[in-house]
């Protein structure tokens, strides 16, 4: 695969080309991963606004270093602009996007329709999530849906893509070309069963995995060793989740308030003892990326820098994981 092909922007309306041979979607992320290069994805903080300029503004610090930008779907059960809206805007501006779907808010009818809609808008990557419970969010009185779970969602979209039918068996004339992603959380219980569950996600249809934050490298290494024993790293691309911690207080708050985050005491202590905690948090993130890159079977990193998006390009650049590669060739966003 030559450089030119890799730098080709995401599909642009209204064409709906078939993916290149050996690919399921042809998204930039898929092409980078299949060509064996270390991929970088980054999470976008969705705006509480209806102005497209705010979306482009939020994407700007991520675009130059990320092969694809994740648009979260009401993460932590907090209401923000929808993932499908953000992905549609960014895809039209030439960015690679990852459309996140959480099973918390929509049933199978809504989700399957949205997948077709997203594909028509040029979105080529999708991340299938169960979603946090409604209780932790800003509207705890909402009805939790959970009609599907992350695995039945993966299988549903794979059926739409590969069999060309809805879950009901009805035919889809042009199936959605999607690179299917799933999440995994290697550092929380049940540690022994996490790799087995990853195997189940691969079985259900996952092409790539983005993990939750990894702050505990030894635990992650044990997870990856088991993953290699099961031969999973050859069947799925694993992107390890990383992010800068702003302060010891923020780290403690995250640990006790955000579901599924494991931060060892030693990590918090290191930031606490530092004279410049934010600087130390960034340093730590860079070191983690460099350690994680060396673990066999890791195909990339997923940077989640909540409210520290401005640091992402510096972190990625200093870590050297891109080895001088430039992921993004941007079009000028079209706003009025």
């Amino acid at each position: 695969m030559n450089d030119d092909q890799q730098l080709k922007p995401e599909p642009w309306l209204p064409s709906y080309d078939d993916p290149p041979p050996g690919h399921v979607s042809g998204s930039r992320l898929e092409r980078v991963l299949r060509s064996g290069q270390f991929a970088v994805t980054a999470e976008l903080n969705p705006p509480d606004s209806a102005d497209p300029a705010d979306v482009f503004e939020a994407a700007r610090p991520l675009a130059e270093v990320a092969d694809a930008i994740n648009a979260t779907d009401a993460s932590g059960a907090n209401c923000h602009m929808s993932s499908i809206g953000i992905c549609s805007l960014l895809t039209r501006a030439g960015h690679g996007t990852i459309y996140q779907i959480s099973c918390r808010d929509r049933n199978r009818i809504a989700i399957q329709g949205d997948v077709l809609g997203a594909a028509a808008m040029g979105v080529r990557n999708v991340l299938c999530l169960t979603g946090d419970g409604v209780g932790v969010g800003d509207q705890p009185g909402a009805k939790p849906v959970f009609d599907l779970d992350s695995l039945s969602l993966l299988r549903t979209i794979r059926t739409m893509r590969d069999e060309g039918t809805f879950l009901s068996g009805r035919r889809i004339t042009r199936p959605p070309r999607m690179f299917l992603g799933a999440a995994e959380n290697p550092c929380v219980p049940p540690l022994d069963w996490r790799p087995e569950r990853l195997a189940k996600k691969v079985e259900a249809g996952a092409d790539f995995i983005q993990t939750n934050y990894i702050f505990d490298v030894p635990v992650f290494e044990r997870f990856m060793a088991r993953v290699r024993d099961l031969g999973l790293e050859r069947r799925v691309f694993i992107l390890a989740g990383v992010g800068p911690l702003a302060s010891a207080r923020a780290a403690r708050w995250m640990r006790s308030n955000v579901p599924g985050i494991h931060i060892p005491d030693a990590v918090i202590e290191r930031i606490e003892k530092s004279a410049k905690p934010a600087e130390e948090g960034k340093r730590l993130c860079i070191e983690l990326m460099q350690q994680i890159r060396e673990i066999p079977g890791v195909a990339g990193v997923h940077v989640m820098a909540y409210r520290r998006e401005h640091e992402v390009s510096e972190i990625v650049a200093e870590s050297g994981v891109l080895k001088g590669r430039v992921p993004e060739r941007r079009r000028t966003p079209v706003t009025k």
Partner: peptide, 18 residues
């Protein structure tokens, strides 16, 4: 969450529910 294919990623230390 009525997961038919669990657990989710939110399991608390000691194996307790999110």
């Amino acid at each position: 969450k009525q997961l038919r294919n669990g657990p989710c990623g939110g399991v608390r230390p000691g194996g307790y529910c999110e």
